[in-house]
Design a protein around this nucleic acid. Structure first.
Lengths: 214, 214
DNA sequence: TTGTGTGAATCCCTTCACAGCG
DNA sequence: CGCTGTGAAGGGATTCACACAA
């Protein structure tokens, strides 16, 4: 077991900012690359990468989890819950669902899709690789049986809230929501909204305020 | 022409925060809904929606663009570059590309896909609806001919930087990048990174620091 | 000497509170 | 009177700067 590509996070560490959490992802990828390149120590400078963030930011981020850097040397071996795997149910076997399902990096990154569900009878029963698409009526059973952590909702907006309620009631702790609506969930449940149209609009609005000096 | 679902943004307004820009998207959706419901005035409270943000935030956000609210009444008619349409080239006719292409909301929201390109000879020539998939070698020509604003890169990481360079050199002003790498581009070019694995990791890391009181 | 760890300073965004206009 | 527009206050996150450990 390689302890290299990991950073140990105490299970109940002090509340850490969302931005820090999101940067961890990048640090891990960078660690993997450098490990593959045979490096045994890594400076905050390297971890920051070119442009992603700054060395100071890296040190600040990592300092939230303890101090496992070696002064004058850099970071050597660290441990994170990367060995941890997450059980995921994908609800919605449409285009977005299939794109996610087919993306190998998800499995590499510790996300195991234990089931794919859909409401469309025409899709139920079809197979994606070894995975047979089930009916969304089975959501509760699947979540309970596989002790699912995360539910991905790649479904129409009209169905999303109802499915979210059912997923939460069955024990899901995190939702990734592709529907363009704001889900209402208990505080203990984490929701990650992915709204590509909104991203696109933000991008275009940003464009409209870029000076195109003549 | 309905001027209702719009907020006029001066072409060269003072630098506005990214968070504000992203919220505009939501305001516009809300405006549309209320317009459909026959309302003619809208309060900041309504614009905020249930939980998205606060009334004060809405007023602050909109105040960046001028003051077109009516005190004691709310907001009536406003104008934004929503009538503006954006010309988009989609590079990469894989699963993510097809999911984006098929999503009707993009067109509704002002994004016109003027071409779909791919490097795979097996895909070139196929048709998605009325759109024939072209070869990625035509990128420069397509961008120039259609005066493209935005380029969506739904391609493997290994191809992304090269395509970004070519797109920028040909006049693209904004890139939406689905590849899990950091693109290097001139300052004037806006990049919006969409990294679903990173979102998923952020979600799961957030989970691991939620107390599951025993 | 190098590069971490961290208080202090800074910057930016959000929230508050209220003056003022319709 | 209701609701906007905005200065001021507040809270976080990022950046700076440097003591200190290897």
């Amino acid at each position: 077991m390689t302890a290299f590509t990991s950073i140990r996070i105490p299970p109940l560490s002090p509340r850490v900012s969302a931005s820090t959490i999101r940067r961890l992802s990048h640090y891990l990828r960078t660690l993997e690359e450098l490990e593959a390149a045979g490096e045994s120590t890594i400076s905050s400078q390297q971890l920051a990468g070119r442009g992603w963030t700054t060395a100071a930011q890296v040190r600040k981020d990592l300092s939230h989890f303890g101090s496992f850097g070696k002064r004058g040397l850099g970071y050597g071996v660290a441990e994170l819950g990367l060995d941890r795997r997450w059980r995921v149910v994908l609800v919605g076997a449409g285009r977005i669902g299939s794109a996610l399902f087919a993306y190998p990096r998800f499995r590499e990154r510790g996300f195991d899709c234990v089931a794919v569900l859909d409401a469309d009878p025409a899709k139920v029963g079809a197979c994606w690789g070894d995975t047979r698409i089930g009916h969304v009526d089975d959501l509760e059973r699947v979540i309970a049986e596989h002790d699912v952590d995360l539910v991905v909702l790649a479904v129409p907006a009209t169905a999303a809230q109802d499915l979210a309620d059912r997923a939460v009631a069955s024990g899901a702790r995190g939702l990734m929501n592709f529907a363009p609506i704001r889900l209402t969930v208990p505080d203990r449940v984490q929701v990650s909204d992915v709204n590509l149209v909104m991203e696109m609009e933000a991008l275009s609005h940003a464009l409209s305020r870029v000076r195109s000096d003549p």
